[in-house]
Nucleic acid binder design. Sequence first.
DNA 1: TTGTACGCGTTATCAG
DNA 2: CTGATAACGCGTACAA
Lengths: 349, 349
Amino acid sequence: MAPTDPTPRAATGSAPTIQDVADRAGVSKATVSRYLNRGGEQLSADVAARVAGAVRELGYSPSPMAQALKRGKSKLIGLVVADVCNSFSVAVLRGAEKACREAGYLVMLFNLGNDHVLEREAIRALSGYQVEGFILHTLGHDSAALADAARLGKPVVLIDRRIGDAQLDLVGLDNDAAVRLAAEHLAASGYTRLLFVTEPVRGVSSREQRARAFGHFVTERSPALAGSTFEAPAGDDAALDAALRDLQRDAGTAPFGVLAANAVISLRVAAAAARLGWALGRDIGLVGFDDPEWAPLVGPGLSAISQPTDDIGRIATSCLLERLRGVALPPRQILLPAALNARGSTRRG
Amino acid sequence: MAPTDPTPRAATGSAPTIQDVADRAGVSKATVSRYLNRGGEQLSADVAARVAGAVRELGYSPSPMAQALKRGKSKLIGLVVADVCNSFSVAVLRGAEKACREAGYLVMLFNLGNDHVLEREAIRALSGYQVEGFILHTLGHDSAALADAARLGKPVVLIDRRIGDAQLDLVGLDNDAAVRLAAEHLAASGYTRLLFVTEPVRGVSSREQRARAFGHFVTERSPALAGSTFEAPAGDDAALDAALRDLQRDAGTAPFGVLAANAVISLRVAAAAARLGWALGRDIGLVGFDDPEWAPLVGPGLSAISQPTDDIGRIATSCLLERLRGVALPPRQILLPAALNARGSTRRG
DNA sequence: TTGTACGCGTTATCAG
DNA sequence: CTGATAACGCGTACAA
């Protein structure tokens, strides 16, 4: 089968190296390397054919590790995610991973599990593996961690959330417009006493933006509209229930509604309404950010702001790839539009 | 600041190498390496201190890439997932990623997006980066792809689904018991005409097992119980509606119920019931596999079989780590128990 | 057009 | 206890 095999590498567990290919084709490593990288153009037809044959027969493929070590380029992209269990995160992750793969990059994933202490470790570990760039969807508590990445000259693209005051590319939702869209819809549906419920803001930029936008909206429409904001402590359902009861009390006879800052909060508010015996739509209006697949089935259907998650992931990736190609534009901020899916939770009567 | 700096590496973008540390400490690379790997024990106190200082001052940390090249061990684990958008997949992924990280491993993620053509590419790409082992949650259509991994002598742990007839470690749910638990619950709640709804089985082992277990159960309880199975084509809601109407017709006056094979199907069945104007619980019983966070809020609450996803991920990881340590047991099959969360969708009247 | 020699950052072997 | 030196698999000047 392999009569001219100088040093039989077959049957050994390890993968064939470029040297094996060279031996089998009767050429030098350099020739094989050239064939692989520049194509057969710069080689004589005879040699090219022999190398091609050897590559095929051995099932050779170069070691990305060794290539990374040599070139300094790893074809790896580091993806840090605040919480893989968050539907927004995975949806974006999905788009980004696909785009990376199609561009010949592999994704190294680091999940923070909402533990901000891990942020440093994440970008350290990842850059150890020579990832060429980062896509970050983090809590944004550790801007110092970013310094490391920046110092190493690796491009960074932020998703959804700004980190500290770092001047970096950011891909996310047009939160201002989205909040307006949602609040306007509540108002148009007749809910005039509004409560914006969010996870504790704690410096997360997108949460801040949404809360601020809500505040602006309410101020503009005052006094026809009234509204306030509530930061729901994680796990404390009683506090949330109390906030809703306050909303009801303050509203008096006016219809009242809630704008939930993300899917998790939407779920918690819906559950609270159920506890209080309130029917969504009839007794309380509800529209939430993020439009998960279960939205149509909660109560009379959950009205929701849907984000173009797939696009966000894809665009973040192409943004990063541009930087890798050396594009030296100033930091961009790409804000994508939201869409409203109106369902039963904002239909009164 | 650095008076004895032979070759100033500071201010250069690249990370410090072991050579930089050696120079700064006035020792050889080998010494630094020893200090790093075996600890300061085998070194004179003086040298150890100098090296330690240099490491700290330079903020040096070894390149996992170079280590991987040299040692053949990369501290990387390949994780292939059928679909990151599937709540079961992410939940398992979460557990596995955490366990890996705690063991000092990083996860390279490859998402198939339910495209079985990518299976080959996934394990090829991953093994190129010298991943030490694989955790696989795939469609299982390409057992040939596994051969590559096996041939390279890399351990593989399967999650939830068997692949071909490969004899490999498998961590998953005790599907037999789980199906019994669910079906028994439906029966005990008074639903005596049952339909098992699953995604197209197409050789996916866990789907097969669940369907088969359902068949067994029905046979055992016959004729008090009757049941059949329906494979819901993706995206074809009309077919699902029709299947449910058939169920109703065949049931006559007897209460009927559905056992959904996973969360996606649960959602589709719930939606179909809504289209047909049937109230969950009262008009149709429903219990589904997987217990996502939204289960309590769909209709009167969705009765669900919850899987210990976190444990599955964690155990799969430790299983793989054992193999990496060279444990040479025969292929194990670790089946975890399911739990039932009964809610409104199985309460008649 | 092809081969030789060296270096990427690390570890391991073998002297000293 | 420590220091040269040779790999690991690959790319690339430089030389032929």
